[in-house]
């Protein structure tokens, strides 16, 4: 055993003195950084092309949402008093894929902050990344988890499938307050985790401003409204989150490519310098050898 350790030590010493191995090491390192740069550059280009589509989907869903949520502003649903200890549900919307900066951790932080205030709240997570984040600290709070969303711009079908499952849950647990947490797309360089309140039928019925509207008693409009709004809000949250994620990924990959470029420059210089040093050393060896023969 000691003998082997001795061999190893001898080997390291030998490598340092010869210099060839470090040259090869630098070369390999340089190659791998170049590969990484290629990957990040490609990812950036892919994200750039997808950004346009994602932003368009987001803009449309915003118009859709405005039309939908105007009622609640007029009806003053936000002012309805909640019970002293409301049963809350948090829907945290993010996605499955990483490499996009702090998108997922921001939502994770926001979720944990709310959970610290309302420890009894249940959490529904949309996306594997956010699931992993919440699971680390509050695994018992998660009641429902979805994945597979956010590969392309979200559609209403996806949103309504998720809404369907949440409605089943709502029927069982009767939550007093439901809020959606998502990344709001602010600009191409920034996003902000945002919470959006959803109103259940009771809240809608109790809203003061609702009396301004003519309602058909028989057709149970508040139920239809709250169910439809859930799907709509999910769609908007997913669309905003998707756009924010894509743009964050583009920025992250842009930075990564730049860093890789810097490293490539540094290592190329180091590589060339070492190579020259090795050649000089060899020349010195040869000349000394030749002159010693004289």
């Amino acid at each position: 055993m000691f003998a082997r350790a001795g061999v190893n030590a001898a080997r390291t010493v030998g490598m340092q003195s010869r210099n060839y191995a470090t040259l090869r090491e630098i070369e390999m390192r340089l190659k791998s950084i170049k590969n990484i740069e290629k990957i990040t550059k490609t990812m950036k280009i892919v994200a750039s092309t997808r950004l346009g589509r994602a932003q368009k989907a987001m803009a449309l869903s915003r118009v859709y949402d405005e039309a939908d949520s105007e009622v609640y502003t007029h009806a003053e649903s936000a002012k309805v008093e909640q019970p002293a200890e409301p049963k809350s549900l948090i829907i945290a919307v993010s996605s499955d894929k990483g490499l996009c900066g702090s998108i997922h951790s921001q939502i994770g932080k926001a979720t944990k902050k709310i959970l610290a205030e309302k420890p009894t709240a249940d959490v529904v997570v949309v996306g594997d990344k956010i699931k992993a984040q919440v699971q680390r600290s509050n695994s018992e709070s998660i009641v429902l988890a979805f994945n597979g969303t956010g590969k392309a711009a979200p559609t209403f079908v996806e949103a309504s499938l998720i809404a369907d499952e949440i409605l089943k849950l709502q029927a069982q647990k009767k939550y007093d307050s439901v809020e959606i947490l998502y990344n709001k797309f602010v600009s191409s360089v920034s996003f902000a985790p945002t919470a959006k309140n959803l109103y259940n039928e009771e809240t809608i019925k109790q809203s003061k401003g609702l009396s301004a509207y003519e309602l058909d008693e028989d057709s149970n409009v508040p139920v239809a409204m709250s169910e439809f709004s859930l799907a709509n809000s999910l769609l908007v949250a997913m669309a905003e989150g998707h756009a924010a994620e894509i743009s964050a990924r583009r920025n992250a990959m842009d930075n990564a490519s730049k860093n890789a470029g810097e490293m490539i420059n540094k290592y190329s210089i180091l590589y060339n310098r070492t190579r020259q040093a090795v050649i000089t050393n060899e020349l010195v060896d040869i000349i000394t050898g030749a002159s010693s023969l004289d």
């Binding site: 449309l60 869903s61 118009v63 039309a67 209403f156 028989d218």
Partner: peptide, 25 residues
């Protein structure tokens, strides 16, 4: 009129004369 779909906005704040809607009632 604001007439919007999840993937398209058909009318966005357009002035119209009349709209007939197929309400459930």
């Amino acid at each position: 009129l604001n007439f919007s779909l999840p993937h398209e906005a058909l009318y966005e704040n357009v002035s119209v004369t009349q709209v007939n809607i197929p309400a459930v009632s």
